[in-house]
C-alpha cells in the first residue's frame, strides 16, 4: 500500500489523475494473477528461475501498456499467458546456441520442495522438448485449450498445432519407454 501511495504521488505530478487509477488497477491484477502465472511459467519453462524472469518481463511490458491492453477488451490474463508462451519460444530460439544443456536450478533461491519435481521422469522428458512443442503440451494439458485456441494463442496454424502435438507426445512416449 505504501508503494501505491508513492507511485500515486509521482504519477499525479507526471500526468494527472487517470494514471494513478490505472497503476492501482494493474498492481491489483499483478497481485491476483502472480501465483497462477508463476505456476504456468514454471510448466512452460521447466524451471522456476526462468518462470520468474518470464513473468516479470512480460508483466512489465503489459503493465507499461495497461490502458491499451484493457481497451482491447480481451481477458488480460489470457493475453498475458499468450504473451508468455510466445516470449518463451522466441527467447529460447535466441539462446539455444549458447545453452544446449538446460540449467538445473541452483539451490538457495528455490524452495527445497521444487527440486523434487526433478526426479519425475515425465518432468525430465518434458524439459527435453523444444519450447514450441512444450508450449503446445502446456496449453493443452495445463490450460485445457482446444487445438484452435492453441493455434490462435501461438499464432500458428491448426495443422502445425496437430503436428507439434503429435511429435511431442511421440517423443515423450519414447523417452518414458526408454527410461
Amino acid at each position: 500500500m505504501a508503494v501505491t501511495a508513492v507511485l500515486r504521488l509521482e504519477l499525479t505530478a507526471d500526468s494527472g489523475g487517470g494514471r494513478a487509477e490505472t497503476v492501482g488497477d494493474f498492481a491489483e491484477f499483478v497481485r491476483m494473477s502472480m501465483p497462477g502465472l508463476l505456476r504456468y511459467g514454471h510448466a512452460l519453462t521447466g524451471n522456476p528461475h526462468d518462470a520468474a524472469d518470464l513473468v516479470q518481463s512480460v508483466l512489465e511490458k503489459v503493465g507499461s501498456r495497461w490502458v491499451s491492453v484493457q481497451r482491447k477488451g480481451d481477458d488480460p490474463l489470457a493475453y498475458v499467458r499468450r504473451a508468455m508462451a510466445n516470449t518463451h519460444i522466441s527467447i529460447w530460439r535466441r539462446r539455444r546456441r549458447e545453452n544446449l544443456v538446460a540449467d538445473l536450478p541452483d539451490s538457495g533461491v528455490v524452495a527445497p520442495e521444487l527440486s523434487r519435481l526433478e526426479n519425475e521422469p515425465l518432468w525430465q522428458a518434458l524439459r527435453s522438448l523444444p519450447p514450441r512443442q512444450r508450449a503446445v503440451i502446456v496449453l493443452r494439458y495445463y490450460e485445457n485449450l482446444s487445438e484452435a485456441e492453441i493455434a490462435n494463442a501461438l499464432g500458428i496454424s491448426c495443422g502445425t498445432v496437430k503436428s507439434q502435438s503429435s511429435k511431442a507426445m511421440a517423443s515423450l512416449r519414447t523417452r518414458l519407454g526408454k527410461d
Binding site: 499483478v30 501465483p35 508463476l38 516479470q56 508483466l59
Partner: peptide
C-alpha cells in the same frame, strides 16, 4: 510442486518495472 513462491515484493517490482 509446480508452485513457485514469489517474494513479497514481486508485485511492487513488476509495477515499478512497468512504470
Amino acid at each position: 510442486r509446480l508452485d513457485v513462491h514469489s517474494t513479497p515484493d514481486a508485485t511492487e517490482a513488476v509495477v515499478r518495472g512497468a512504470e
